[in-house]
Write a protein that binds this DNA or RNA. Structure first.
Lengths: 139, 139
DNA sequence: TTGAATTCCTACCGAACTCATAGTAAAATA
DNA sequence: TATTTTACTATGAGTTCGGTAGGAATTCAA
């Protein structure tokens, strides 16, 4: 029951891009150094974010990545779901019909409530919220 | 980010014991058959529950397991935590001091809120609640 | 126009974890 | 004493996790 490095790194990546936003492209190497994460591994993760249109990329010298929208327009939920594949606590919630016993299942109610509670948090927290909360904590 | 079979089976096990409670000991084989789970695997799981005092066991013929308390006295949270080891969404929440960067961490606030939301659900749902919800759904 | 910087793509790999299976010892009962 | 049942421990196949590695494609600057 743990968020993997993919989700955690994706979030840190997006937060780093948000904190260092200037309109210019930021090379992945710089992010990897700041975040102390292997740049080759981050490459795979940001590739997913790039394909989904979460970040814009530019190849070649002076290239790199930058956010496609403002930090307030990203929720933690969409970033985590994209990077993790799913953040549902049990597989049967991912796609309806994956389990044929839901009608007689004693536990499905609990999992649904759990998923709702998780979604409520991550879908109502934006990158901007996280940065503001951090700055408030620092002061 | 999934609850493993250990946690899920532990919950079904306890619910099965609750539904079939009569004061008598129930052999694990019967539970395994009803739940369609390998009895040898369930054995390992119920052993953890037994050592923690969640169930009482009796060896030999006519032996088996039974609940140590009433169904309303068990929360899903304590069962899941025991079986899973932890249900925290990130490792750094499990024991304070496991990460030395919490002060400068941009994401810790999100994980804390997420953990609170999860705990709020599982610690306020008892076995009895789950059974009642199920019976209401069946009607 | 060439070299350096950078993303894009894909294959591979060790270690850990998941989900069991297997066998035997110990205990209790009829 | 035979049977039933839990208790304990070892093993193992398969999958996932967390990367590493290398090269192709693209872009910019000198």
């Amino acid at each position: 029951m743990k968020i993997s490095t993919k989700g955690r790194y994706a979030l840190r990546l997006m937060l780093d891009l948000a904190l260092n936003y200037s309109g210019k492209y930021i090379p992945l190497k710089a992010i990897a150094q700041r975040q102390e994460i292997s740049d080759k591994y981050l490459e795979q993760i940001i590739n997913t974010l790039s394909k989904a249109g979460f970040v814009e990329s530019a190849r070649g010298a002076q290239g790199g990545y930058r956010l496609a929208r403002r930090p307030s327009q990203y929720t933690a939920g969409e970033i985590l779901r994209l990077a993790e594949g799913s953040i549902a606590p049990v597989a049967c919630l991912d796609c309806a019909g994956s389990c044929d016993k839901t009608d007689t299942c004693l536990t499905i109610g609990l999992w649904r409530k759990m998923q709702e509670a998780i979604n409520d948090v991550v879908d109502n927290t934006t990158l901007e919220d996280m940065i503001k909360e951090y700055r408030g904590r620092q002061r």
